[in-house]
Design a protein around this nucleic acid. Sequence first.
DNA 1: TAGGCCATCTGGTCCT
DNA 2: AGGACCAGATGGCCTA
Length: 223
Amino acid sequence: MAELKSLSGDTYLALSHGYTATGHAYTAVRGPETTRGFGASGPGGDLPAAPASRVPAATVESSGEQSGDEDDAFERRRRRRGPGVSVDSRRRPREQRSLRLSINARERRRMHDLNDALDGLRAVIPYAHSPSVRKLSKIATLLLAKNYILMQAQALEEMRRLVAYLNQGHGLAAPVAATPLTPFGQAAVYPFSAGAALGPCPDKCAAFSGSPSALCKHCGEKP
DNA sequence: TAGGCCATCTGGTCCT
DNA sequence: AGGACCAGATGGCCTA
């Protein structure tokens, strides 16, 4: 694991040029500590104390306490979207607004839970976690996790084969020499070269519309 | 400045 | 009816 965690930037580059570590202190600038801060919005459905740095204007206007500005913003959006026919539209405006805020808060919590889960996934994925390395994007996290799982499965299979071989009374020298195990058994599958052993990137290559010679920006392979 | 990534809002749909 | 889930829209921040 230690070797994998010391993944170099170039190796990560193999995953996708769009998700490369740039050497900037990404997490220090916009990591969870900065982007979150909504954790306090507990089950009560209270409104978030959103950090000003990452909150769209609309969020500040519509999620805070009911104010004149907030109502203006709400009206602007309502006009922009037109008089949509929804369940909400059958309610009185005050009640409708209150319900909307409650739904927004719920959705916010749901997305925060999703991000927490992604953070948990990042924590167990072997990649460079140093502060000088940009945090993995969501898509990169998922792709890396998938490749890592496949790699582990292959390593397990290799170990099973080795154990079976040894159980047959063979010595250790011969098989190891014949089929040398890499430190993690990832001779064919390596989690950080997504396209190399796992085929085309299933998420993006399918929708890839670039020239035939171009590489998929998500997996680094030709689609 | 364009593109990537992200958070949030919103309306629709499905489920309990 | 209310909650969960989803996808589209919008706008902010950051990097190349």
